[in-house]
């Protein structure tokens, strides 16, 4: 049991993390590196006579091999963590007789994971281009973690509570946003808003793909092991 849980969670995470990293290199990291030009001051938006025009720079991946290798490694590590949590919840649902885990079901589990772990926190705290000045890290991390847990409980209620009480899930999904994420009372952005918006949507897109792969792979490995 324990070996099956650990191997399916970690292997699914390694696969999903690797593929997510590849998607990030193509879509997300070049925008991130372009954002760093504004973070470091190499590029300045609204630089001369208040003109709002900055040229796009195609920085590509900038050939920093060691840095990108770490990004692959940490993606695999992070997704392995998510994979273990996802498989643990799948096993719990199965043990309670709430769900039979198949790879097709896994796709839905993965999408639900994306909603709870990526989309819900991103509603309050949009993915940040480097150089974004945010509120203090402590309260942001607390809101982020609380939002993930609350959203996961909300989705679980909607999926598995078999009475109108399931609607309590909506309250769990809404609560973090009614409370609101910690924000500063001023805008500090140095990068063009278009670039920051592109970064946010691209990183959510890559995460949606990563989580769908994670859900499928985790359910596939888990159900094979049974």
């Amino acid at each position: 049991m324990i070996a099956r849980l650990l191997t399916s969670g970690v292997l699914a995470g390694a696969m999903a993390g690797l593929l997510a990293a590849l998607l990030q290199f193509y879509f997300v990291i070049p925008v991130l590196l372009e954002g760093e030009l504004f973070e470091t001051g190499a590029m300045v938006h609204f630089a001369d006579n208040g003109s709002p025009q900055s040229d796009r720079t195609d920085v590509g991946l900038s050939g920093e091999f060691g840095r990108h290798a770490l990004t692959v490694g940490f993606n695999m590590l992070g997704y392995a963590g998510f994979g273990l949590l996802l498989v643990a919840l799948m096993a719990l649902a199965e043990q309670r007789g709430l769900a039979d885990i198949s790879p097709r079901q896994g796709l839905i589990w993965g999408l639900a994971g994306f909603i709870a772990v990526q989309l819900a926190p991103a509603i309050g705290l949009p993915p940040e281009l480097p150089g974004t000045v945010g509120a203090e890290i402590g309260p942001r991390q607390s809101w982020w973690m609380a939002t993930i847990i609350s959203s996961a409980i909300g989705l679980w209620c909607l999926a598995f509570v078999k009475s109108p009480l399931a609607l309590i899930g909506v309250a769990f999904l809404l609560a973090p946003h009614v409370i609101g994420a910690p924000h500063l009372d001023a805008y500090w952005g140095v990068a063009p808003p278009e670039l920051a918006a592109e970064f946010a949507t691209l990183s959510l897109g890559a995460a949606a793909a990563g989580w769908t792969i994670l859900g499928f792979a985790a359910a596939w490995l888990w159900s094979r092991g049974g």
């Binding site: 990293a21 990030q24 997300v28 990291i29 991130l32 840095r67 990108h68 770490l70 990004t71 940490f74 993606n75 992070g78 990526q118 926190p121 991103a122 705290l125 949009p126 993915p127 940040e128 281009l129 480097p130 945010g134 890290i137 942001r140 991390q141 982020w144 946010a200 990183s203 959510l204 890559a206 995460a207």
Partner: peptide
């Protein structure tokens, strides 16, 4: 520092 790019790309609150 090592996890920096991945944290930004995954929208973890980073710094």
């Amino acid at each position: 520092d090592a996890a920096h790019d991945q944290r930004h790309a995954m929208a973890f609150p980073c710094h």
